[in-house]
């Protein structure tokens, strides 16, 4: 009897393997399709951007980045990021805090509203601001009288970019904050810490990776946004052209290498973003696993270090 048991088990295992696992052919076919697809549609174009940028050599590449309009576009893009990212970080932290830590009426409405920019076309986002602040818009005449320019100027670009990028930080933070719960903060309160000190010493450190991740994604989108910015910018070269708009302009003027040179900077930004994103995901994963391990040990008893 006892001798038969292992055999039965082996049979069962063999069957279950056959049952759950497809043949190697299917596996490699699927992996192959994915690989080819990614190579043709993602990797090749990306490599091509750099190839095209350098087609006339480093000298031309360098020169096209140093051309005044390009420099101005790069500066404007950085300026927009510097304005937009901190504002959306602040908003994202507030919104995530409110949603994760409190119960209130209209909470689900707030969550839906935060997602709105993901759902709406960027062009619409741009048009909203034209309708609001453009010369024919609701506040246009008043603004014009007081000599304040929003549309076709830096403020308009910043507004449109804020609209498009505001979900990123909040979306990243909400699940992290919900998972952390209130206990650590309550512990800080019972030890005499004020709300602000609790936030600074306890809340922020426990969500730092999620927050950084959100900021990086927000930054990438803020620098790369085309549609919304295109509507409100007015395309004044050297004044209201951001990098994406400048790339389009150069390309339309048949300055291929120059267009690709600026585009290569944006592509580089994407690569850096992906790299940082992977790093942060890895760190978050590690923290999570540590938490899991320690939770398991809580039950399992002392661990010899």
């Amino acid at each position: 009897m006892a001798g038969n048991v292992p055999q039965v088990n082996r049979q069962a295992t063999a069957k279950s393997q056959r049952g759950t696992e497809e043949s190697p052919l299917v596996k490699w076919l699927l992996v192959g399709v994915c690989g080819v697809f990614l190579a043709v549609f993602l990797l090749l174009p990306l490599v091509n951007v750099f190839a095209q940028a350098l087609v006339k050599g480093w000298q031309v590449y360098w020169a096209s980045l140093h051309e005044p309009d390009s420099v101005s576009a790069i500066k404007l893009t950085l300026l927009i990021a510097v304005i937009v990212v901190p504002l959306n970080t602040l908003f994202g932290v507030c919104a995530a805090w409110a949603i994760a830590k409190f119960e209130f009426r209209g909470k689900s409405l707030l969550i839906t509203l935060i997602d709105l920019p993901f759902a709406v076309s960027p062009v619409v986002a741009g048009l909203i601001y034209i309708i609001m602040f453009g010369l024919q818009g609701y506040f246009g005449p008043w603004l014009d009288k007081h000599d304040i320019q929003i549309i076709f100027a830096v403020p308009g670009i910043a507004l449109a970019t804020i609209f498009v990028t505001f979900p990123f930080v909040a979306r990243e933070l909400i699940p992290v904050m919900q998972a952390t719960g209130r206990e650590q903060e309550e512990a800080a309160l019972t030890l005499g810490a004020s709300g602000w000190k609790t936030f600074w010493h306890v809340t922020l450190p426990s969500v730092k990776w999620g927050l950084l991740y959100g900021i990086i994604l927000c930054n990438a989108r803020a620098m790369g946004e085309f549609g919304a910015v295109s509507v409100v910018s007015g395309h004044v070269s050297g004044v209201t052209n951001t990098m994406p708009l400048h790339v389009e302009k150069l390309y339309n003027e048949y300055q291929g290498p120059a267009a690709f040179a600026v585009a290569s900077l944006l592509a580089l930004l994407a690569l850096v973003t992906l790299g940082l994103k992977s790093l942060l995901e890895w760190k978050q994963q590690r923290d999570y696993q540590r938490a899991q391990v320690s939770a398991a040990e809580t039950v399992a008893g002392p661990k010899s270090a």
């Binding site: 206990e183 650590q184 309550e186 512990a187 010493h201 306890v202 450190p205 923290d287």
Partner: peptide, 9 residues
């Protein structure tokens, strides 16, 4: 606290 709520950081 029930789950001790030690400051992780």
């Amino acid at each position: 606290f029930q789950n001790y709520a030690l400051f992780k950081n």
